[in-house]
Design a protein around this nucleic acid. Sequence first.
DNA 1: GTGAAAGCGCTAACAG
DNA 2: CTGTTAGCGCTTTCAC
Lengths: 326, 326
Amino acid sequence: MSTATVSRALSRPERVTEATRERVSEAVRVTGYTLNQSARSLRLQSARTILVALPDIGNPFFSTILDAIEREAARRGYGVLVANRFARGDTDPLRDYFLSNRADGLLLLDGSIDRAQLEALTRAPTSLPLIVACEAIADAPFHTVRTDNAYAAEQATRHLLRLGHSRIGHIKGPAGNVLTAEREAGFLAALCSAGAEIRAEWVLHGGFSMDDGARAARTMLDLQERPTAIFATNDEAAIGFISEIARSGLICPRDMSVIGFDDLGIAEHFLPPLTTMRQPREALGRLAAEALIDLIEGAPGKRVPRQFVLSSQLIVRGSTAPPRPR
Amino acid sequence: MSTATVSRALSRPERVTEATRERVSEAVRVTGYTLNQSARSLRLQSARTILVALPDIGNPFFSTILDAIEREAARRGYGVLVANRFARGDTDPLRDYFLSNRADGLLLLDGSIDRAQLEALTRAPTSLPLIVACEAIADAPFHTVRTDNAYAAEQATRHLLRLGHSRIGHIKGPAGNVLTAEREAGFLAALCSAGAEIRAEWVLHGGFSMDDGARAARTMLDLQERPTAIFATNDEAAIGFISEIARSGLICPRDMSVIGFDDLGIAEHFLPPLTTMRQPREALGRLAAEALIDLIEGAPGKRVPRQFVLSSQLIVRGSTAPPRPR
DNA sequence: GTGAAAGCGCTAACAG
DNA sequence: CTGTTAGCGCTTTCAC
């Protein structure tokens, strides 16, 4: 029995007699044989592995998405390599991953990577299969899976307006991040179209971490006049904010309403339970993985950039309430 | 210039003339050449990749450890493949990863995998480099990196005793998990040695999720007599518990003290800020990755199982207080 | 210090 | 349907 036959029996059982198939499986069982993937990758020029680049695996927002990606990839027979905190303004290590045949495609989950760098990655001659997720560049020359951040931010702000708030502030995300910009834009759009007051000092510099939210809270506490409600760029910032104002005796939502963004697992169990815009993270991850693998396996011609946009959902819980009468 | 020379210039620059080295780097730069890792892996019989098997990437406890692992691995030139939710009572897919040369070693982060299965993985002929982290089997025949859970649980319980509590309950982790058993044992040991009352109905079935904590809360609320303090098996259970009793008007720590385990990022910002036993997660991940790579690169003879045990630290915050005088 | 050549384990093309 | 053979790109003897 030749090696070729074994190979066929394993990868294309239908091209082999029933009898051969049996003999092969028997032999495999007895000898404990396993396919050598390196050899296979070398021969096929494909690693059946995708690389997922994240800014921070430690963050539950990303790790949930990664979870969904991993599941979908496994379903289609792909492994998942992770590259964390890679965005050092340097895409070369990433590039190496495929050029070197370790991964067949890249799934990028980061709003802060430089656009020029990105385009360099996809440029010929090696045009690598790339999906950008959670990044919000319009008319980008690559496939994109994301949620409509600006619209969702607008919705979040409208929720506060509907409750009767007119003095509304915002905790921004990190500077230079596309999501930050989109969410701020949605926030401003909502205030604008409602004719509500926009005060520069109520738009606080923040970030995506709880500490950033806490810092924003301290800034706000120093203001002469304070908003009665806050739209935070994500749940972590919202939680850090609420927690910090509590130290000064301000109770959410009695003294100030706060709405977050993402709907992390903690949102439901926080005290108060956090009102937030839920992003469909599992769907995001699954779709992104699907799209990437399609791209990898599809004909190179089929690579017209597509943009998937998922929508977020308002989840009303206990951290928002009508403003306290004064 | 032969391919052999290029190979040498790239991997062992010292074995080549200065001039050759320059010519090679120049050529590399001009042509955009990259090493084909599959071919290299095939030739060297090593993938410079480790596989990390986790029960749940979505859980911040694990994702932080994964972060540290990834960082250490990258530092030593290794990639990280992730396998999530793999523990289906079936280690074969895992086994395939190395036997198939996709990964050179396994880092296992799971307290619930069956011991017999584990030993099967390390058994000859293929004895694969394996590190078990956060798993607490004593005298195991493989390397282990963990924290002393029983002792830490005892410490946590002692903290409650010191505050003056004598009616103390426990929310257990998932059944069949080593960590669950160890933490419960430590809890009981502390009560025992303090001569405090141990009530079976105060030892609640729980789990590692916030929902599990909430469920335990509902069970406890139905009791005629309630404990005045709770040691929860982890922070998530603690948070779910606190959040749920709040719905019934019970305030932590006024009506009940709660101590958690892990010190997740949220612990500090929760309301009340959570008292907890901090596990050194970064150190855990780093050490585990280090040990695994040492194992992979070390002589096969050097494989005497070593056990690293890190210690946890009591972090006192606002969720524990003396019992309310009655 | 450098080149020629073999071979890691696999799959695809081609004959039979 | 099965066997033979070539070659994926690399590293490593072994000569020179």
